[in-house]
Design a protein around this nucleic acid. Structure first.
Lengths: 201, 201, 201, 201
DNA sequence: GATGAATGAGCTTTCATTCAT
DNA sequence: GATGAATGAAAGCTCATTCAT
């Protein structure tokens, strides 16, 4: 039971942190505000996290862990690379939609942290990126996508496109239709962009 | 002459700020360090800028102003939308290459700022984005790019892809060949992705 | 049996406290470290002591109690005041030698504490000092030590000298020969210093 | 003039620190209280000192510097080692009398710091101690003090005696007569204690 | 009696900004 | 215009102490 409460409090702090970071940005967020939001004393936070950076890192790691698990499951539904690209795009945007605050934090803070936090290596984010790379690789192996496609460039191009679109949506608070339409637009553009001549959908 | 010296000092501060922000990130940069780097007293900075935020905003505005001017000129060389897409991509990445520190600041801080800085509306950045939109619009008008292309989605997708690729390059310090190759890859992918059936390059 | 275990835990805490205080100094020592060292929970400490100050006071009181008992026994071996001075000096330094950590705590923290701890009156320490005074008094009564000797000054002078010598030894970690030699030096100096003309040893 | 004000503020902070440390002890003193006492903002303290430890170290260094200079001058009045011992004792106690707060800080905090402050080497204190050693050495050279006297032990014994006596005076707030009488007592005891047979005063 | 998770007051230190010179 | 010493609000973090179990 102790471990249940443990997990409970830890989780409450992380959830509160996402909320507060989304609202103010990491640097303008106060530990005291996270504590208030999580309904714990500020000292309690330091029982679960080493410092403020550590909270953010754990937000990243655990959220991406969930996202990756979720995405892997989603992609399990088919083995058609073209369909998988579509599924990835839709799912990514859907995730952003369903976890708006988390999305804001990931999009805005990940770059910062990635660059300025010493000791932080964004393993999970790289893993997520490589899910995309794998899909394109399979497409090449099946003769559907061009052979001369650089996986490194392609995975980043797709991720960047998705990220920017999601960011726009998050910041402007457009309605949900926007994301669905954007998913279709982007999927088509990418699929045509990477298709072999005869594999064009 | 006073105005020349004025401009001189103002410019030195902005240049110093880019350097310092690129090294430490905005929030971990000290006004005093910018002052040292610019070889002015820290009080002097407040003769030219309202506060620390204002320095960053001016870095954005003036840099993007230069970049936009530069890009407009570049694109003036042709009126073929397909070529213009290529030119845009190449030029953007080349700019990142030539102004590495500025690139680091733009990529890492712009998102933060336009989300969290009250009163800041990123007009210049929107203008830059719309250069892309215009190219695609012209392509549509000439029957080269698909009619059903959403300009809003497409411009963001391209910008996001470019930004992510440039970010990767900036952070990993790969050699310059990488950017050139990436430019070709991305250009081809986009052009095929947006082409009408018969307009495929 | 409960009281035996009681005493056991209490004693373990005090022993741990001596060790931790000696290593870090009172103010830089953590209750949690004492608890860890004593292998009890930190809350348990508060079953035996009122607060952190109380632990230190009890270290003083009980250590000095032991030391006084030990010293009384030692001095019982003779009733020659000159010999007793020698025995006192030797024994004091030997005690420091045998209880090095305790010595460090007494020498460094005692001054602090009896100046700044409200409510703390160093009864035991005064008692120890008065053992010295008594020896000198006996020497005067037997016509061996000068009549004009101020006992208050003399007891403090001898204690101060011993304390400084022991402190030096503790801090510089010289070998044990040093303490033996110092004991002889100091004993001779004091005895000649306090002797009546004809009573000079 | 800038340097005059500089020195002024720095000195005010040091003087305030002595007062506050004497009242509360180093660890129970607050930077904010020193600032209030010195009538500067707390941030100003950090323009002159690296941190709280640094203030204490500078109190030590500069006070001892003054004391050493003062003592050297005092001892210049004679070259009789026996007289010099007397002068040293009197002067030391007089100094404690005249700078009561400083005396409290030196006596109570020096030991702590000496032991627990990494990087702090009490050069000045050692120098002071060696003034005593030099007097005894001269006494030996002139055949006045015993040849077998260990200078290391003797200097520490005398310093320890003086320190303890002064501490008692400082803490009990006895009147000034006490110190004068104690000086005579101690001087006689030491001189007889170290004299050669024929050199006994 | 024993535990140790939780508390929250309170500290040092930083640094953007001001303003007398 | 230029300076940089001075300011003081503000925040992260620690740790003695409590108390439900």
């Amino acid at each position: 039971m102790s471990s249940i409460r443990q997990g409970d409090k830890r989780f409450r702090i992380l959830r509160a942190a996402v909320k507060v970071f989304a609202k103010n940005g990491f640097h303008n967020s106060r530990i005291s505000e996270i504590a208030r939001e999580a309904e714990v004393a500020s000292g309690t936070i330091y029982l679960y996290f080493r410092n403020k950076d550590d909270i953010l890192i754990n937000v990243f790691e655990e959220s991406l862990d969930d996202i990756i698990r979720d995405m892997e499951k989603e992609l399990g539904a088919t083995d058609d690379p073209r369909l998988r690209v579509k599924l990835f795009i839709r799912r990514h945007l859907k995730l952003m939609k369903e976890h708006r605050e988390l999305a804001e934090v990931l999009q805005v803070e990940l770059r910062q942290s990635y660059k300025f936090m010493k000791e932080y290596e964004p393993k999970h984010w790289i893993k997520y990126l490589n899910i995309i790379a794998r899909i394109f690789k399979e497409g090449q192996e099946k003769g559907l996508f061009r052979e001369d496609l650089s996986l490194g460039v392609t995975k980043r191009a797709l991720f960047g496109a998705l990220d920017e679109i999601a960011l726009h949506w998050v910041l402007t608070k457009k309605d949900e239709k926007y994301l669905d339409a954007a998913a279709e637009q982007l999927a088509r553009m990418v699929l045509e962009g990477v298709a072999t001549r005869n594999g064009s959908s």
